[in-house]
Every structure is written in C-alpha cells, then in structure tokens.
Design a protein around this nucleic acid. Sequence first.
DNA 1: CGACACTTTGAAGACGATCAACGCCGGTGG
DNA 2: CCACCGGCGTTGATCGTCTTCAAAGTGTCG
Lengths: 253, 253
Amino acid sequence: MKTAISTGSVRDIPLFAGLPEEVKDELLKAGRLVKFPKGKVIFAIGEKVTHFYIIIEGAIKLFRDTADGYEKTTDILTTSHTIGERDFFHPGHVYNTNAEIVNEATVLEFPISWLKNTAQKHSVFALNLLSLISEYEYMAELEAEHQANMSSAQMVACFLQRICVIHDYNPGEFELPYNKSLIASRLGMEVETFSRTLSTLRENGITVSGNKVRIHNAEAFDEFVCDACSVAEDCATHKAMQKKLFNASEKLA
Amino acid sequence: MKTAISTGSVRDIPLFAGLPEEVKDELLKAGRLVKFPKGKVIFAIGEKVTHFYIIIEGAIKLFRDTADGYEKTTDILTTSHTIGERDFFHPGHVYNTNAEIVNEATVLEFPISWLKNTAQKHSVFALNLLSLISEYEYMAELEAEHQANMSSAQMVACFLQRICVIHDYNPGEFELPYNKSLIASRLGMEVETFSRTLSTLRENGITVSGNKVRIHNAEAFDEFVCDACSVAEDCATHKAMQKKLFNASEKLA
DNA sequence: CGACACTTTGAAGACGATCAACGCCGGTGG
DNA sequence: CCACCGGCGTTGATCGTCTTCAAAGTGTCG
C-alpha cells in the first residue's frame, strides 16, 4: 500500500544518489512510515535529536520563538525535504528549531543512529549528506541576502515563484497552499505588510484575490523578480519559472 | 620554521578531532603554507573550487556583489576557520562568494581533491566535516534571525562581543581589528548608520572613540546584549564574554 | 602640500512595524 | 435558527528606524 508508493519516490532523492539499488532497499527498511495530523508538534527546540525524517507528503514548518515572545517561521518544508540531519551533526545534538505539521503530513522516520551509521558505512552517503547540508547552508545565506536587499514586494514575488515551481502550479492561476499569516511569518514580515504588499503587486504582473494567485503579465513578473535577486541568472527556481511562463504563452499562441 | 608553528595549532582544530596523531601528520603533509598580501583576491564567485583553506593567521572577508552594484560582506574569517568546503560539496562545485585578504594572511592550502579523498577514506573526518558545515548552517540561520530582530545598536554590541572573545581582547580596552566600513558592511548596515550607532552605545556600557573600544559598564553591556538575542543563554560567545567581564571586575576588586 | 580613503554629521525621505478598528467566515451553543 | 465567538484578513493612521544624499572633517601617504 502506501509504503510502496513512498519508497518509490524516496529512493530517487539526492541523498541516496549513487548507491546500489539493493543498498537503498536495505537502508529504507529502517524507516517507518508515519502520518502526523495538522498542528502536531514533532519536536521542540533544545530536545535531543532522536529521529531523522524525510517528508513524503504534506508540509512542516520550522520555527523559533523570538525574544519578544512571538514565533518566526524559519522554513516550510515539503515533499522530499529532510529534517534533523543538521541538528544532529551539530555539536550538542539537539534540535535547533521547533517543528510543527502545517497540513497533515506523511513522513519516513528513521532513528537518528541510522543516519550516523549509514554515513560511516557508506562514504557515498556521507558525501551526499555533505552536499545536502552545504546546499541548506547556501540557501540560508542567500535568504539572508534576500532579506537584506529586497523589498517586501520582491520577497513576496520571489516566494510565489518558488511555490509555483516546487508544487508545479500553473502560473496562470493557482491557490496559496498556506494561510497568509504563515506566509508572512515565513517571509519575516507582519501580516499587515504582507496584505498591503499583495495589492501593490498588480503592476508587477501578479494579481492576488483571496487565495487565488494569477500571474497575468509574464514579462513584468520576470523582470521584477530578476532585478531583485543578485543570483537570478544562476537560480534554478527562477529558470524553472521562466520555462513555465514561456510554455504558458506558447500554449496561448 | 613557520610550518612547525602552524601545524602545531592546526592539528587541534575540530576538523581533525578523533583522528590518530599519525594520520593527522600524514594528512597535513598535503597542505602548503601560503602567505597572501592584503587586498589579494583568493577566488571569485562562480569559479570552480580548486582549493580548501585553513586560516592560520590574518583575516579574510567573504563577500558578494549585490544587484545594485556594491558589495556585501557575508563573513570575516580568522584563525582556524576553513574555506571552500561548503562551496565544494555544493552541487556545481563553484565558489559561492568572493574571498579577499583583509590583513596579510597565512593559510594552509590543500588541493580540493584532498578534501574529498580524506572524507571518503576516514569516516571520522567525514563526520567532523558534517559537524563543521552544520555549524556554519546554524550560524547562518542565527545571523538571519539577528538581522531580523535586532536593532543596529544590538547588532553592533553583538559584533563587538564576538571579536572581543575571538581575539581574546581585554573588554576594558581594545582596538577594532578592521576599519569601520568593513564592519558596517559585515553587519549589513550603511557606514553612516554604523557611525551614528556607535555614539548611542554609551548608555549601554560601550564607549567607542576612534577605533578604541572600551566596555565601561559590564552590567549594562551584558543586559543589553542578552535581551537582544533569543539564544543568549545558549550562546558560547556570550558566556565567554560574561566570564571575561567577570574576571575583569574581579581584578579591580 | 595635495590627493584620496575613511569617518562623521546633518537633513530629508522611504519603508515597514505598530496600534486600532472593522469585515468576513465557520463553528458552537443556546 | 439565530447569536456569539474566534481566527483570519484588510485598511487606516502614526511612528521609529534605517537609508540616502550632501557636505565637511580627519588622517595617511606619496
């Protein structure tokens, strides 16, 4: 049943790249498929790392409580993302964020010892893990740069682009997969700012009403996002989006 | 001569922890001691990763050019920091920042293949590397949080604390190791803002005139920094600083 | 001495946060 | 069935902080 489906796609994630199929089988056996309900807290900051997770389906938010008492979402993770590896390898071996289920989620859960043992036993896996964590590190840096250099409008546009690519939505019309408070928190802005920002995006090719998003002007959108981001030309997400937008206009012609 | 000194301290960095001494000797032989002059660009963004560096002495800034043409310093690295590992393991294997010598610097330079081979051959080393990169990732995230939640005054105080601890300066009086433009860039603010901020810090226990810094009120300073940072209680740097301040007041009594 | 990099100071402006009020909707309980 | 409530989203007005532009001061090095 479900296990079969999940294992099918999980075995293709970069973490397992380069491993023989039979080794993958062996490794994946250690995982347990778990379904978490919306709102469930998987772990809290400061707890010893006990598990490593691979998300099969659904969304999980990572967040931290700030000094002034409210919570800042550091990331929203979805299918094929992994959780816990960075925290575990970190000196102290404690979780560095809280994790809570956004929408009902299915995850593959491994005891954390599995991660260490596998890294020790299979150097290919260890290198993949290094790659994975380096990638996260780079993303975190890029994100910081974005926060510093982009206006809230640009942040929002960049975010919309990302979810459009990740979930393979149709740029012409799609729905926001999360409620606006969560998105605002993820983008590091207040809900009021987020709300106001959405209205101003019309001139940049994006129309949002309710939770319907329509990118009605591909050129305007592309230009707007592009000159916001210092690495736009090297950005896989941005390229993917351009392709989507291009395909959409092809179809119309 | 110099090689002996350097190798002495380098062998104790976390990256080599848990390796037998003879293995360390063997590994360190692959490194070449290089001295770079101030202003020298070691590598530029987008170049293929060719080397892995361990800083023996001096300071190196990592920076990226922003869309609007000026440069943002992402980090200033000093003794015992490593450079290149994250970029290398990153898909694409290109440097993700520019690196330039701030003050004359001595580094231990390894061909990048050494890094991969060592990680493959010694699983302890691979795990250390994972630990190192996870640490960087955590720092990047914390930094982002700081940028989001702290005022410029708090950012500056936090920075002064860090350099005071890293360089083991006397909190009672020390000199800024870099010029103010560089520090401002590192903190993600304009030089004007930085300059103005310094004046306002007197009431928080910090006096800055020219490039002399004096922390003249330990309690005020500690409180100010502490309620700025959500993780202050878990922050090794902050604890170290408290100890320094405590010792200083001990001596006076 | 003059050129140039670095730093400081002033004044104006932009942007997002904050505080406050209200509309909308779905659910619960009388 | 209706009234009330709470979560969510929008809108308005105000405020503080940092940036920006401009100018002048400080220091160093040829």
